[in-house]
Design a protein around this nucleic acid. Sequence first.
DNA 1: TAGATTGTTAATCGATTAACAATC
DNA 2: TAGATTGTTAATCGATTAACAATC
Lengths: 212, 212
Amino acid sequence: MKAYKIPEATVQRLSIYSRHLAQLISEGVITVSSGEIARGVGVSSAQVRKDLAYFGEFGTRGVGYNVQELYSHVMRILGLNHTWNVMIVGAGKLGSALAVYKGFEDRGFKVRSVLDVSEQRIGQQLGDLVVESLAFLEDRVSRENIDIGIITVPAAAAQEVTDKLIRAGVKAILNFSPRVLKVPDSVVLRNVDLSVNLEVLSFNLSFGYNLK
Amino acid sequence: MKAYKIPEATVQRLSIYSRHLAQLISEGVITVSSGEIARGVGVSSAQVRKDLAYFGEFGTRGVGYNVQELYSHVMRILGLNHTWNVMIVGAGKLGSALAVYKGFEDRGFKVRSVLDVSEQRIGQQLGDLVVESLAFLEDRVSRENIDIGIITVPAAAAQEVTDKLIRAGVKAILNFSPRVLKVPDSVVLRNVDLSVNLEVLSFNLSFGYNLK
DNA sequence: TAGATTGTTAATCGATTAACAATC
DNA sequence: TAGATTGTTAATCGATTAACAATC
């Protein structure tokens, strides 16, 4: 546990910076300033420098940042310098969509296993994976070295699946079910609520202004 | 445009409060205090009172809040006291999953139309909807009184679809494509990045602590 | 009246922005 | 050296929390 805190907004912006830097690399840009990054992604240049300053000194005064180097640093900070092995539990519409979602693989998240309890779904082909029985959970977590579990089961089954994942050794969980999950402090949990996005839009439309 | 700003976090918490209040109603609870709501959803009681105070006085000193009344107020604040008509553009895996996602309908978001350009997808059944050609966009927006457009097309097509939706009269857009969209100030835009959630987990795992 | 809980103000905390010395 | 841009400190801004008068 570090002594200082890093704002979550900083981490989310680093993700945005890394995508922009990848774009600059593909355009053959060698050097970039905090101001150019800032204009590219719509934040202030002070914000860009401050975000980077949490993690080190990556630039050269008077010159700027080497695009390739900065990209490597940011990807390493985000932990995206290697592949994470992912298991999806729940092969309904949402789970299936996530299983074949290209955006994950592009960023180093490789879905190694998709499980479900339903006989109808077991055996179903999803890209180059086949949906397997939930009974294989423990075996697949250890065999495939699963780091992250994605939960897309109905709310009623979510805590039980969570417990199984944790017992099997998964260290992080992304929860799409509308259920508050209990996990030990050693496990990183993140909840995604798809409809809250629509609800914020609804609020904005009703109140007649953009938030923030 | 209001003179004071309401934190987005407040709006997201109101969404959480409303779900908890619905739960309390189903349990037959008549009166609730800010402290009980706070414990129920994991925030401070001052936070609950402050969030509500932006919008009015809904409680009785010394007593608390009438659950049914407070629920009605919060749902009205969020704009969820009526149905919003939604169009999904892009009937790939993600778009199809969202089209049949029960969580939306539960909160008053009714998917009225799903469009795609692909001949393979046009005609496909999704729940009680059929995927139609993108050529019908303008017609369906006006015929179905579409309020909100959800964009689940590839990045390359996202801006064009956005422009069409806006010309057709849509007032809010939820964008799942990894593309920065340009919209006029009068249109409310919200971007959802599914993989940023995994990236925050990745950062937490790499740095060995929970953020915030 | 005594006890409880709201609504609101003031204090605190944390994140963003502005400014500038360091330095290429 | 003159010009540019970083890294960092101080100022500002905004959100959360604590405290309490109002009041049921």
